[in-house]
Design a binder for these strands. Sequence first.
DNA 1: AACCTGCCCAACCGCAGGAAG
DNA 2: CCTTCCTGCGGTTGGGCAGGT
Length: 238
Amino acid sequence: MGERRPRISGGSDEGSSRRWTAMEDKTLTEYIRINGERQWNCLPQNAGLKKSGRSCRLRWLNYLKPGIKRGNISQKEEDTIIRLHKNLGNRWSVIAGLLPGRTDNEIKNYWNTKISKKIKEDDCKADSTTSSDPKPSIGHESLEVPNLTTKQQLGLCEVPQTSLNESDETSIPSPEEARMELEDDPVAAQPRDIYGVVHEHFETILSPVRICEDKWQLMHDDVWMDFEIWNTFPDQQY
DNA sequence: AACCTGCCCAACCGCAGGAAG
DNA sequence: CCTTCCTGCGGTTGGGCAGGT
């Protein structure tokens, strides 16, 4: 199949309550231009839109917001997505944060429709020789990704002890434990450090790193420089 | 030309975390 | 603390389109 035409709201869609019309887009854009991105729940009523606040938010973030790139994901971007997914798993919002102009929804869709298919095909080929492990990995090492929120991954909020205890392998150590672990085996400590890495653009990428540094005091230079995530953006100077 | 099938992607839903009262 | 509301995230769904028959 060839390139698809972009879908345009309105026209025959005018009667649909699901699809956004051009007029609704205009109304939403104008409202946000004046009032800003907040109070999503009140927005539909105030703006006179027959949509939910969440729907408005989604429409704005994924489609109307200035700077959104649409379609034509380049080979370089695809490579980046694959590398990041390898390290982060399905952290679409985090991955999107590292691809300026791309939304989590778009990346998720791209992954589900294209990349995962490619990977499946590759796995089928590989199956004949070796059993594959779908877990995200770093280099040759398997990486368990705990089920944490983005803020938890970034070290911006506390991780409840209950969720940490679900698996001993994925529990985050205390600063003291982490330091000891790093001294004993720097490689073993690497996977958790990924959570400090991901943030929107590289202007801010060091901010969560610093937070983790304060928190765990284990941001050893060698660990960071060895970590594969840096290779995700080979052009970037650190 | 009409119908069928698979693909794509916008939009929805449920859940969880955070903030405010 | 507890409750309520808001926001954000990831999984899933459903409608429309392109290509095949």
